[in-house]
Amino acid sequence: MSEKKTIPAPLANEGLPPEERGLFCDAAPREYEPARGAWERFLNWARSESLWLLGFGTGCGAIELRPLMTSRFDMYRYGIQPRPTPRQSSVFVIGGYASVKTLKRIVRSYEQMMGPKFVLALGSCTINGGMYWDSYNTIKRIDQYIPVDVYIAGCMPRPEALLAGFQELKRIIKSGGGEGQNEYARNFDWYKANQKKVIKDWNMPDYNW
């Protein structure tokens, strides 16, 4: 990851009118040290058994979240439930391709989530562009812009595949690997530079931790 730190992004609330700048924070996020030993393992267990999804259907993958939430597949069994506000949710499901306009909202929602936070990216289009590899408006890999914990391949991934992905996410969290928040903070400049390379109209506040 060391070679990623190249271009420092300007840390200013560009695009905001002056009177609103004070409302948002210019400081970059910081890393948080995990707790030690058995206590952290217990907390990780709790985090993995209570996954709250952010209710943001960013793409067509969101259509398979409906069956997943309802009685056929019933994700509540596994402690997974949707949550309407980013402040309270811990898992962000990227539902497929992300257009530039949506990517901006994805980044914003991701930054608003409280850590530790996890990202589950569905569909081939989040992995390498998939069907939209030559589209002028969709990004080709989401992990350039936010850290991703689990990819689920397919177009679209079936609910069973999603459940398998959630189990894999749980395994990662339990093993202490779900440190996307710290990774984002560590390589913050790199992520910001990537985001600003794509999102030209950066008319939104930079940070709001």
């Binding site: 709790a46 209570s50 931790w209």
Partner: peptide, 14 residues
């Protein structure tokens, strides 16, 4: 119970 533990175990807050 798990939800409460999880919420309280969040690392940052605003």
């Amino acid at each position: 119970y798990i939800d409460i533990v999880k919420s309280s175990a969040k690392r940052n807050s605003i």
